[in-house]
Each structure stands twice: as C-alpha cells, then as structure tokens.
Simulated scan of single mutants.
Amino acid sequence: MSDPQRRCIATGQILEKGALLRFAVSPDGRLVHDVGMNLPGRGMWVSCDVEAVELAIKKRLFAKAAKQAVDVPADLVTEIERSLTRQCLALLGLGRKGGQVTVGFAKVEKALKSGKAALLVAASDGAADGRQKLKRIAGPLPEIDIFSGAELSQALGRENVIHASLANGALKRKILAAVSRLSQFRGRSGLNTEVSE
C-alpha cells in the first residue's frame, strides 16, 4: 500500500508523504517542523531536501500556503536536520528498550551469523577493518553508517558503541524510513544498500 500523496509548496511536485517534510504553524504564528507528522492544523509539505526548504523560505511560501503571517526560524534548516537525527536515534533507543538491538562487535557478529540480525549499524567514526568484517558477514543486509559513536552511545545508553544490529520487524522498517529521510535531507546516502521493503 502506497503512502498518501501531497504537493510540495516549493517545487509543485506531488510526492508520497514519506518523501516530504511536514510543517505546521503554532498558535503563536511560528513555523514548526512536524517530524512526527501529527501536529494539529493544516500541514504544509516540502520536499525532503535543503534546497526545497531554502526556496520555500526565500519565496515566503510558508506564509502563502498558511494564508497568514508566519514566523520562520532563522536556523530552520539546522532545526530540521536536528529533529530528523533525533527521530532516528530515538527509534534505535526504542529498539534497545524492546530487546531488538544487539550491541558490540562479538554479539553483532553472532547475531549476523545466526540470521537474527536484519540491519547493521556502524558508527561513522569506527575503525574501517571491524566495519568491513561485519559488512562481509552481513552480505546484502542494509547498513546505517551516518551516526557517530557518541550519538549511538547516547541513543543506546551504552559507552563506546561502534557496532550494533537490529532484529527484523516493524521497527526496522521505521528506522530505515527515518534514516532514508535524514540522508535525503542531507543530500547523501546513509544506507549502504538499497532499501527495499
């Protein structure tokens, strides 16, 4: 089943909601990035990339779409990237609490070999040899490599997290979708294989 579609106010393209960012206007007239896509009020949709957001700001398209004066934060682009990053890391944290995340080289290696891992997570600043060894074992499994060891450690409530894996299930799909949006916004791929669900 495909996502409902919305029109980007900056490019005019009609895209699935998953490829767009949703914005709402707070009661005090401030523009808010609705990362969870669930804030009340009429949503405004912009393609999930920096250029589209900057175009919407430059041409005052948020105010036009909202049909009212809108206070656009000066650091909106940074704020969007931060909230998308927080969303990804919060989902990983949820996986840890639900017992779906395995942490540590030896445990991840074991999870991969036993077929219990469906997604590999590697710290962007981790040593290349360890990452490559696990990637070889993982084969075609998707790998997320856009978070630092410090970010992963904080999200997973452990020290020095470099390697982690996630079991299969709905949470894996949510994490892949969230990482894909963040990577798209940053203009790079954060997944080392195509995401096909």
Rank of each mutant, 00 (worst) to 15 (best):
E143V: 03
V103R: 07
L120S: 03
R86F: 12
Q87R: 15
L89R: 02
A111F: 13
G149L: 03
S26L: 13
V25Y: 14
F23H: 08
L76Q: 02
E109A: 15
I137V: 09
I146Q: 01
K97D: 07
H33G: 09
L89K: 05
A122C: 07
V32C: 09
L156C: 08
D125A: 04
G104L: 10
A69P: 00
K110N: 08
G104S: 09
K58V: 04
L89I: 05
G126A: 15
A24E: 11
K58D: 11
S26P: 00
Q100K: 10
R136F: 02
L141F: 01
C48F: 02
R30I: 06
I146C: 06
S114Q: 11
Q87N: 15
S124G: 07
A24M: 12
I80P: 01
K64D: 12
L152R: 04
V103K: 02
A74F: 00
P40G: 12
L20Y: 04
D71S: 06
V77P: 00
K59R: 14
T85F: 03
D34Q: 08
V101P: 02
D129K: 06
F23Y: 13
R86G: 09
N38C: 10
A106Q: 11
A74S: 01
K116W: 06
R42C: 08
P73H: 01
G139T: 03
K67C: 04
A117P: 00
P40T: 12
K110H: 13
S153M: 05
G41I: 14
K110T: 12
L20I: 03
P73D: 00
S26V: 03
K67M: 08
V103C: 05
I144R: 04
G41L: 10
A90E: 12
K64E: 15
I137R: 04
E54H: 03
K107D: 13
A65N: 07
K67P: 10
I137E: 05
P40L: 14
V77M: 11
L84Q: 01
I144K: 04
P73K: 00
S153R: 03
K59P: 00
L84R: 03
G157Q: 09
A150T: 12
E51R: 14
D75V: 01
A69F: 09
V161N: 02
A65G: 07
G104K: 14
G104R: 10
G99V: 05
R60E: 15
L91T: 05
D125S: 01
T85D: 10
Q87F: 11
M44L: 14
L55V: 15
I146H: 03
D34M: 10
K107F: 07
M37L: 06
A56N: 12
G41K: 12
Q100R: 11
P73T: 00
P73G: 01
F23G: 07
E81K: 11
A69T: 04
L84H: 05
